[in-house]
């Protein structure tokens, strides 16, 4: 582990996610039924599998949002069975929802999430402008309330709100959903840049060809188990 800009960064090859026989429940249903997975820093992992296989629960578990019922689960050195909260600030999770406030402008939303992650106001505004530009959002859109954006534009704004945090671990659930071709390319660039900067990326997607172009390790999830793993970075 090294320190970059005052923050801990994991060296390539160091385990970032270590799951061993993890069971996680959604209500009484075991969404993960003994999943084991080890992911090292700098890896890009594609999670594939049918609907209801447990991909989203696996991502939420790694984000510290779902507590393991049994088994061992460590993410970024933190034991998730004890407390998932210390993990969260170092992780960016893109789910099916965008997590944006409809009545605030795009710039205000991104700036708020940057400040919520601990950045001071001026740095938050600076990073927000950079991230929104990088996501290809037109400058005229930044002062508009989120309620007036299209679904694709909201998705991009949501990704910008995550990017400002410069997380060590990206957990992306169908990141290409609702995006046009340009937006999809932007997402691919974001993933490539994150990995180049030493971050680890897990992507759950049904758009296999699209994600495979990023040359990921492919993990197949079915019935709450890891049933196939190409095993390590290609």
């Amino acid at each position: 582990m090294v320190r970059v800009g005052g923050r801990r960064r994991y060296r390539y090859g160091v385990p970032v996610i270590q799951l061993c026989d993890v069971v996680a429940l959604l209500g009484r249903f075991p969404a993960l039924a003994g999943a084991s997975l080890s992911v090292e820093a700098g890896e890009t992992v594609l999670l594939q599998g049918p609907n209801g296989a447990g991909k989203t629960t696996l991502l939420r578990l790694c984000a510290g949002l779902v507590r393991p019922e049994s088994g061992q689960a460590q993410v970024l050195g933190h034991d998730l069975s004890v407390d998932g909260r210390p993990v969260r600030r170092q992780v960016a999770m893109l789910g099916h929802a965008t997590g944006l406030y409809e009545d605030l402008s795009v710039a205000e939303n991104v700036s708020f999430w940057a400040q919520a992650a601990g950045l001071d106001k001026s740095l938050a505004a600076q990073r927000a402008t950079g991230a929104l530009g990088r996501m290809g959002l037109d400058e005229r859109l930044l002062s508009l309330p989120v309620s007036r954006l299209s679904a694709g534009q909201r998705r991009r704004a949501s990704l910008a709100a995550l990017a400002v945090r410069r997380p060590q671990l990206w957990l992306l659930d169908e990141p290409h959903a609702g995006l046009d071709q340009t937006g999809r390319n932007v997402v691919d660039e974001l993933i490539s840049d994150a990995v180049a900067a030493g971050a680890t990326v897990l992507v759950a997607s049904h758009e296999l060809e699209r994600v495979r172009s990023l040359n990921p390790r492919v993990v197949t999830v079915a019935g709450g188990l890891i049933v196939k793993d190409t095993g390590g970075p290609k």
């Binding site: 600030r89 965008t98 919520a116």
Partner: peptide, 17 residues
């Protein structure tokens, strides 16, 4: 409702506040 409309509540939890 403001927090649950587009699951901003999860964002608050993830932000580490």
């Amino acid at each position: 409702a403001v927090e649950s409309a587009d699951d901003a509540a999860t964002g608050l939890r993830m932000a580490g506040l």
